[in-house]
């Protein structure tokens, strides 16, 4: 087995992995980061979404070896210094989660969405952009509200930083 090395949430992780080892398996079993979930076999549910080199990808549809040398951010790496990311805070504030299983992928997808499209995001855009993430509990209503609210916050933070 070859060694696969990547930077996960700012820390270098190097582990032996089979060729077939998926990125999500590397993260869960290799790096012990079980926040990233597997909810389907066909690359549709989005429970496994992480950021690779700044872009949202489905970690169940990527070999660990493909991410060799990459910068990976998982749900565990989103909050910084004990401070929740605005998207995490918005999911709690707006009750955008129930069982919590789709939540990590949902939040990672939502952060990527705002990063790509900017803010504010309207309901139709958010719903369309959530095509790759399935939630069975919330009916999406509050997820959409949470993302819209967080997009405003993130835009405000960006403006403040400039």
């Amino acid at each position: 087995m070859a060694n696969v090395t990547m930077t996960v949430n700012g820390k270098s992780v190097s582990k032996p992995a089979e060729g077939r080892t998926l990125l999500v398996e590397f993260l869960r079993d290799g790096a012990g980061l079980t926040g990233t979930h597997v909810g389907c076999d066909t690359s549709q549910c989005g429970a496994c979404v992480v950021h690779v080199d700044g872009k949202a990808v489905k970690s169940c549809t990527m070999l660990a070896a493909q991410a060799d040398g990459a910068q990976v951010t998982t749900i565990e790496g989103l909050a910084s210094g004990g401070e929740l990311h605005p998207m995490q805070a918005a999911f709690r504030e707006h009750h955008g989660l129930q069982c919590g299983f789709c939540t990590p992928g949902m939040i990672m997808a939502a952060v990527d969405m705002v990063n790509r499209l900017g803010a504010p995001l309207d309901e139709a855009a958010i719903r369309a952009e959530l095509e790759g993430n399935i939630c069975r509990c919330t009916g999406y209503h509050n997820i959409v509200k949470a993302i819209a609210a967080a997009s405003e916050t993130m835009a405000g933070m960006k403006t403040a930083a400039e």
Binding site: L33, I75, L78, F91, R92, G100, F101, T103, P104
Partner: peptide, 10 residues
């Protein structure tokens, strides 16, 4: 219960 889920610690 939300905190553990939104930080990936469920």
């Amino acid at each position: 219960e939300d905190k553990r889920f939104i930080i990936g610690k469920g």
